[in-house]
Structure formats: C-alpha cells, structure tokens
Design a protein around this nucleic acid. Sequence first.
DNA 1: TGTACATCAGTGAACGCGCGTTCACTGATGTAC
DNA 2: TGTACATCAGTGAACGCGCGTTCACTGATGTAC
Lengths: 248, 248
Amino acid sequence: MTSSLPSDIRPTRRDRNRQAMLTDIKTLARQQLSEGGPGALSLRAIARQIGTAPSALYRYFANYDDLLSALCIDAYDAAADALIAARDTQTIYDHAGRWWAICQAYRRWALDNTADFALIFGTPVPGYQAPANVTGPAAGRIVAVALQIYVGAVAAGVADPNETQVPESFAAGELLPILLGETAPNLPPQLAGITLTAWTSVLGYLTAEIFGSLNQLVADTETLYQAHIRTIMLGMGFDPLTLDSRNS
Amino acid sequence: MTSSLPSDIRPTRRDRNRQAMLTDIKTLARQQLSEGGPGALSLRAIARQIGTAPSALYRYFANYDDLLSALCIDAYDAAADALIAARDTQTIYDHAGRWWAICQAYRRWALDNTADFALIFGTPVPGYQAPANVTGPAAGRIVAVALQIYVGAVAAGVADPNETQVPESFAAGELLPILLGETAPNLPPQLAGITLTAWTSVLGYLTAEIFGSLNQLVADTETLYQAHIRTIMLGMGFDPLTLDSRNS
DNA sequence: TGTACATCAGTGAACGCGCGTTCACTGATGTAC
DNA sequence: TGTACATCAGTGAACGCGCGTTCACTGATGTAC
C-alpha cells in the first residue's frame, strides 16, 4: 500500500539517502568552518568524517566553490527565517516591538551560528567569490524584513523619518530597486536609506562582538547591545516614550 | 667622518639591509592578503617574489604566525595614526569637528587598506589566533582616540551623555580598565559605553561597505556614510545645531 | 692598517603533508516490459 | 512476478600541486686586537 504511490509523490529510497547525504555534507562543512575559520573547509576532511572516498562528494557538489555557495545561501536563509520568526512573535501593530524583536533574534542567531555569520559577513574564503546572482537575493531577504517593518512603522506614524538627515534621494545600487519593488513599490528611497544606516549599525555591533575586539573591552555585551539598539531606534525616529516603557 | 660615528647611532649596512628586507616582506605579505583574502598568505610566495630562497625568510620571522602578528600590529598602528592625524587637523576646542574628522579618516583608511582592515576586523586567518597580549594594546589605541575625544566633548558641554540610555555601570572586560586608566582615570564607564556603542556603529557600516552587501544595495555609499555618522553623533548627544551648520 | 675570528644572510635540497580533482571500476537501486 | 537494462552511488588509486619548516652549507659583513 505505501509503496503503491507514484514516485513523484513518494521519494525513492535513493532520493531520501541523497537528501540525507547532502545535509550531512553541509553540516560537517559548517562544523569545519566554525572550528577552523574560513579557508578551513576541506572536501577530503569531510569525506574522512563521513567515512567515504573523497571522490564520492563529487556526486553531490560539482566542486569546492559549489559547496561554499550552497552554504552561503543556507546561511542567509537561516538568518532571514530567524528574523521572520522573531518578528511574528509580536503583533502587527507593535512596530517598535517587531523591530526590537528582529534585532534580538539577529544577535542570537549570529552568536549561535558564528560560522555562518562569518561566512556571510566576514572576509571571503580565500579564492572564493560568491556569485552575486545566486547570493544576492538571499542577502536581500534579510534587509527586506527590516525595511518592511520600518515602512510599516512610518506608515503608522510610530516612527518619524524626518528626525534623521538621510539624503532624500541617493543613487541606488542594482539590488535595491528589486528589493523595493518586492516589499513596497514606490517607496521613498529615504526610508531605505535610514533602514540601511540603522541595519549596518546593528551589524557593526555584531561584527565587533563576534570577530573582534569588543569582548576584550566589555564583559556585559548583552546590556550594551540593548543600549545600542535603543540608540539606533531613536535615530530612526521611533518614539522615545514607547521605547522607555518597553525597556523598564 | 660619516663612518667614524659609533655603531649605536649610525646603523651598519647590515642593519639597514635588514630593515629594508623586513618592510619588503611585510609589504609583499600585505599585497598577497589584499589579493587573495585571508589564508592567501604564503611564505614561499613571498620568497619567490623577493627572489630569495624560502628558508631565508626564517631569518626575519620565526614562523608563519609571527609574520601575521607583525602585520596585525602594523595595521592597528597605521589606523590609529591615521585617526590621530585626522583629529589634529581640527582645533582642540572643536570636539564635534574632531569626532567627525576621525570618522572620515577611519573610512578612508579602511577603503584604502582593505587588506589590513580585513586582517584586523574580518574573520581570522585559518589556524591563526592573534595573541591577545600583543595585539590587544594596539587595538586599544584606536578606541582610546575615540574615547578621548568624546570625553573632551562631554567635559566641554558640547555633548550630553544623558541623551542615551547606556547603563551607568556595566561589567568591564580586561582591557577597558587599562584603556581608561591611560586616557582618563576615574572616567565614568557610561562614557566608555556610549563611545563603544557609537564606535561599533561606525565599524559596522565599514564592515558592510567593505566586506559586504552594501555596495549591491547602494551606489552612493559616501553620502549614506555621512548620514550614518550624523545619526550616531546625535545618539551620542552632540548638539544638533552644531552638526547642521557643519554639514550645509 | 692588517689579520683572525665571530656573526649573520642567504642557498638549495629535502622532509612530509594535505589538498582538489580525475578516472576507470564495481555494485546497488530503480525502471520498463 | 520476473527478467533485462539504465541509472546512479561509492571505490580506490593516482595526478600534480604548493605548502611550512629543517638542515648542513657557503660567503659576505662586521668586530677586536
């Protein structure tokens, strides 16, 4: 009975094995990167850990770079998913709450997945340049989430974009228009500018905390992060009163 | 006459050659890193470019890691020097101007020395962990410059630290007390917190611009950076009017 | 000023290593009749 | 249900490569008398 289903619906044993192997490879690859930093990824080492011949991996990835690209995309997607999940823990009407939530989730995800974070935002793996056409859209998803929340906040009057001085129009890159078109057509680029400014500030803190020198300077990075986010939100024109009531 | 000076003062031919060789090695090393990313540094390749035997390099650096550490320290120092030089183009009384200046210089330096920037703030080179005792102080210098300016601004009443909500006391790491002791003893940690928050925001933008996705999103990153800095300065409690008069 | 010795820079061959990738192959899993 | 064939996963040996590091050495540069 169970085996009478057409193969389109019920995947064959081979298909299932293949999927399992694919995730095994990627899991081990991520592990290697997290332990040895970028460039520490070795196909042979993965094969060794799996217990297979090195050449067997070429049934799953055409070559070294292909594996890396797959890891990048997975990482972007995982981060975006984490943000979206965090966003949805808050009401649609609580814009400040949503922004706050994605910021917390971003840090959590980064701390819990250092390797992936490094892969995406750190120095590129030697000799590897992520193919922009593949990796770009995945990267855009993350910013899109942030942008969408801010647009909602401004529309609801909870955030005042005029508090900052981002130029009203600035030359956009290739990806931004696509991004804007997807989330909110006819969006004033100023909002995008503010969001990017804010978002890079968030990212900057995380970079400093994860790669860098921050841990040597401050022990309680958690608290400092909250203050950081608050400052950023003030810069975006979120209502100070709302923020204060939330924090205390 | 020239050769009659004691060897303590006039370095021997050997000494001068040695210095030249040292800088040659480091220059080529930096070049390699900038071309191939972290992990792309190869002693053999350097020897090849210099036109010497690989083993000759061991007269100058005990091993691979030693060379990397030297490069790190140089990079930190170069960045700090650039900041200090920029700071000193402004009057001692123009605190906002000084902060603005070091932010501009920071970006310039980062863009002009991507390899060094990546070495310090990017993902670590595989298998290499910078010895904190060597590298820490150099890293501290940079933050010290920023901190010093902010302390001056607050003392002069140009910046109001109470505008933000950084916790008044937070657990400090190992390095911060040393840093504080050097630049300004008995400094309220709140000011340090604000400075760190601000400084990581600056760094975050640069990380995003240099490593990352920002270029795909925005073409005129220059303008956006100015807005970014302005927002950060507002968050630090700098006087909005002063900022506006400067920008226009 | 000239000689004897110590220091140091650079040579070149060799070490053992791990890497990505190819290739002809065996054997298992699926498919069509 | 059973057979014949096609597809695919994995094997194992081999390729050429570049790497960091060691070692005994030669020759140049400095130093002391």
